[in-house]
Amino acid sequence: MWVGVFSLIGILGWGLVQTSKTRPEAGQPAPDFTVQFLDGYRWEDRTSATLDDFKGHIVVLNFWASWCVECRVEAKAFEDTWQKYADQGVIFLGVAHVDVEPRSLEYLKEFNISYPNALDYGDRISSDYEITGVPETFIIDPSGQVVYVQLGPIQEATLVQTLEQLLVQGG
């Protein structure tokens, strides 16, 4: 009986350790993922991509949702910054968390967002990044390392500053 009890405690303990994994912080590698872009969105003519495909580019990964009030605060800043940096090889990727497709598309239209966006199928990306709410933004360097994490809406200035730094480092 004791064997059973202790193995139960063991499994639970191990499970707890697994569950208490935290989000990837600055300096840690960004977990890989696959995205299917929403209708009308593409990256280099592809309808789906993995983080691995983005190697060599700076990636701004933004978790959002149409029902999220605070996301609306930062939506315009993202589109503007994207317009500014798109030709310098920076990739913006929006991932809609627990959202329904028609609403997501309405939201994207409302803010005229042109950078690639995707639904998080099976909530997998959100789980891997252990997000605790939306919006959350991860900035990933060309080697696939997280360099900046923002909980809650990001300031345009912060976004620009981080990208500038990365671009300077990169080349």
């Binding site: 949702a65 149409s66 029902w67 627990v98 959202d99 329904v100 028609p102 609403r103 909530d123």
Partner: peptide, 23 residues
């Protein structure tokens, strides 16, 4: 809906759940 912890969709009052009900 994952937005409301352990509350079924028919009760949850958030916008996200309202969207789900529309679906």
């Amino acid at each position: 809906c994952p937005v409301c912890e352990s509350t079924p969709l028919d009760v949850c009052q958030t916008q996200a759940c309202a969207d789900w009900r529309d679906i």
